[in-house]
Nucleic acid binder design. Sequence first.
DNA 1: CTAGTTCTGCGTATGGTCTACGCATAACAG
DNA 2: CTGTTATGCGTAGACCATACGCAGAACTAG
Lengths: 253, 253
Amino acid sequence: MAAKTDGSGPVIPAAIESAWGLRERPPKGPRPGMSVPAIVDAAVRVADADGLAAVSMSRVAKELGAATMALYRYVGSKDELLMLMVDTGYGPSPGPPAPEDDWRAGLTRWAWAEHKVLRQRSWLLHVPISGPPITPQQLGWMEDGLRCLDGTTLGEGEKMSVLLLITGYVRNEATLTSQIAEGSRAAGVDPSEMMPAYGRLVARLIDPARFPALHRVLSAGVLYQDDDPDDEFVFGLDRILDGVEALIQRRAG
Amino acid sequence: MAAKTDGSGPVIPAAIESAWGLRERPPKGPRPGMSVPAIVDAAVRVADADGLAAVSMSRVAKELGAATMALYRYVGSKDELLMLMVDTGYGPSPGPPAPEDDWRAGLTRWAWAEHKVLRQRSWLLHVPISGPPITPQQLGWMEDGLRCLDGTTLGEGEKMSVLLLITGYVRNEATLTSQIAEGSRAAGVDPSEMMPAYGRLVARLIDPARFPALHRVLSAGVLYQDDDPDDEFVFGLDRILDGVEALIQRRAG
DNA sequence: CTAGTTCTGCGTATGGTCTACGCATAACAG
DNA sequence: CTGTTATGCGTAGACCATACGCAGAACTAG
C-alpha cells in the first residue's frame, strides 16, 4: 500500500522491468502460452488499424485468439500495456547524428524522425502519458538527441531543456495536424477542405468590431488556404532552433 | 448522414451556437428546468474537485440534483459538454496588451496567463481536443494574442503560426509539470522527491556504455535536483521568443 | 374552452469498458 | 509421489455513454 522505499529504489511496473531484460522466469509452473512482446505487438496492430480507441483488452485478446483475462497474467493493467505500446510504437531511435552534422542539422534530423513516426502512428498522441520516459527505446531517443548537442557550449541541464522543448514542439505540431485529419474524416469532408471550412465558420461567428485582429487574419485569407503541413512544421522548428542558436552563441561569446 | 453542405456553412454543435448567443428558445413546451451554463458550471466544479476522470454524465447530474438523461436535453453528447467545459474553464482572455508593452512583453504576459490557468485547472490538459477553437472565449484568447503582434513586420499567417507555437509550448510545459504532480500524488511520494527518484531510477536502468550522453547528464546531477518549474517555463519561452525576434528582425532588415 | 402540437424530464435497457477474484490444471522441486 | 507455484480463464461487479420511448407540461389555433 505505501510506496516501496527499500534499497531497490522506486517502484517499477513488472512489464517494464522485463522490457529492460531484467527479471527471470520462475522455474515452476506451466509454460506461458503467450509473451509480453506478442501482446504488445497485437495491441499495436489494433491501434494501427482502428485507432487507440479500439484497443480494449478484449479486442487485443481476440486478436491473439486468447481470453480477455489471460492478458492480465502478462501485463498488470491496461495502462501498463499502453506504456509498452508507446515504447514499441516509437520504434528504435534514429541513431546518433552523422559525424558531418553540426548540432542544428542533427537536431533537425532528430525532430523529423519523431515527426515521421507520429504522422504514421497518430494514435501515439492519444496515449495519456503518465510520467517521464523510462522504457528502453524512449531513453534511446533521448540519448540520440543529447548526442546532437555534444560539442556545444550548453550545460547538461540546458541540453535536456532544449530536447524537451523540441520534442514537445514536434508532438504538438503532430497533434494539430492529426486533429485536422481526424476531424475531416469524422465529418466526411475532404481533408483539403477542412481549413477553408474552418475559416468560413469563424468568419460567420465573429463580430469584426469585437475581434479586429482575427478579422484581419481572415481577410488576409490565411485560414482559407490549405497549407502544406510540412511548411508549418518547418516554420516552428526553425524558430525554436534560432532561439537555441542565440543561446549557444551567447554562451560562447 | 452526409455532411450538411447547404448555404449555412459547416455543421456546428447546437450547444456551441447557443454559446455564441445565436439560437432562440422555441415558444412551446414546458420551461426548461436547467440551463446549459448551469450544467457546464457543475461539470467544471466536478473537474476542479476530482479531476476530469470524475466527470461522468451521472456525476454531473447528481451535482445538479437531476437525472442523468435529463442532461441530454441540453447537450448533444459528452464531447459537446467537454468542449463547453474547456471554454468556461479557460475563462475570459487576459485582455489586450498594455499600450506600453512591446510585442515581446505582450506575448510574455499572454503566455503566463495561459500558464496560470493551466496550473490551476490541470484537467484542461486531459480534455481530448477535437479541432481548432470555435468557442467564444477561445477565439478571444486568440484575438488578444494577435494584438500583441500588431505592430510587427510579420505577415498575418506568420502571426498565427507564432501564436500556435507559443500556446503549444505552454500546454506542453504544463502537461509535463502536471504529470509530475499527478504521478507523485498517485505514488504517495512528496512532489519534490519525484525528480530525484526518477533520476535514481534511470541511473539504475541504463548502461553507461550504451547511453553515454544520458549518463553524463545524470552525473551532472541534472535530474536529481527539484528545479523550480517556473524556471523551466521561462527558459523555453525565452528560447521561442528569441527565435521570433530573429524572424522579426530579418523581416525588418 | 378545447384540441393539437411540441418540448421537457427521465426511466429503462443495451452494450461497452476494466479488472478483482477464484478455480482447475499444468509443471516443476524435493 | 507430494507439495508448491504459475498459468489460463470464467464469472461477476461496478462503472460508463447513450438510444428510445413515454407521461405530462406549456404553449397556439380554433
